[in-house]
């Protein structure tokens, strides 16, 4: 496929959704999604609950397959790939899950070390050194031996971020990284996302979020999903200045507007 250019940032698209459809039973969630994720930037996907945001990022990891359409990561079309090849593509991703999805049976250090121990030939001493460094970066120095059940929500998400970064991925996907956090922890997490992006030039971040304040602060590009398609996309400036009733209602969290509860 010829390289697509993201119209918002002018950067080449490292991930492209082309007319993607996905249904679960009678529920048609993605209805012809077209979206370009620019390389080396932070793209934030916003939208009401149930509009297909999580489904959108699960497709790019190959956790879900589209019923129709194409999903390009570089030169690979995930829609037609075999499972075995999908696993190779997944090696390029780090994912921060909504509730961190840490393994309950392992402490923080083992959780973060897990992908390295599974996939790399590094000696354990090197693995541990790398993990300790990453934990320090995300503000979890000293929490190595704690179990996930002993961590607060914010700490779990940071541990999840450390685990996502441990293999130096090209792409980092964040599924609602600030949901359930207090405003200060939310700000800390947002800063962590921006710091991660700045300290690793070239990585591409995709964030799913409801938190409009943070979205406007961290995003290079924002895509707004409505009913399974991208209804609006643009820079934070575009969204701030938009007179569109949909955008305005979402930004202000108003009950009055085209979107009904």
């Amino acid at each position: 496929m010829s390289e697509r250019i993201d119209p918002v940032t002018g950067e080449p698209a490292s991930i492209s959704y082309v007319n993607v459809h996905k249904s679960f039973g009678t529920q048609h969630v993605l209805r012809g999604l077209n979206l370009a994720i620019p390389r080396g930037k932070i793209t934030v996907i916003i939208g009401r609950s149930g509009t297909g945001k999580s489904v959108t990022i699960k497709h790019v990891m190959g956790l879900l397959r589209p019923d129709k359409g194409e999903i390009w990561v570089g030169n690979d079309n995930l829609a037609t790939m075999r499972d075995r090849d999908l696993r190779t593509v997944r090696n390029r991703f780090g994912v921060v899950f909504q509730d961190a999805a840490l393994f309950d049976s392992m402490n923080v250090l083992d959780n973060v070390a897990f992908p390295l121990r599974e996939h790399s030939r590094l000696r354990d001493r090197e693995v541990v050194a790398k993990v300790r460094g990453l934990l320090a970066q995300v503000g979890l120095a000293g929490a190595e031996l704690k179990l996930p059940s002993q961590l607060s929500g914010g700490m779990r998400k940071r541990a999840g971020l450390a685990r996502a970064l441990v293999r130096d991925p090209e792409f980092v996907l964040y599924d609602e990284p600030t949901t359930g956090l207090d405003p200060i922890l939310t700000a800390a997490m947002d800063k962590l996302i921006v710091d991660t992006q700045e300290s690793r030039p070239g990585i591409t971040s995709v964030v799913i979020s409801h938190d409009m304040h943070a979205v406007l602060g961290i995003a290079d590009k924002i895509a707004m999903l409505v009913d399974g398609v991208v209804a609006h996309e643009g820079t934070p400036e575009y969204f701030k200045n938009s007179k569109d009733p949909l955008v305005h209602q979402f930004l202000t969290g108003s009950l009055d507007g085209p979107m009904k509860v």
Partner: peptide
């Protein structure tokens, strides 16, 4: 089952671990 509902199985998949 608990690993499934808390997305730990998705996390394994996402880490390219079968």
């Amino acid at each position: 089952g608990a690993m499934r509902v808390s997305e730990q199985i998705d996390a394994l998949d996402a880490m390219a671990i079968d």
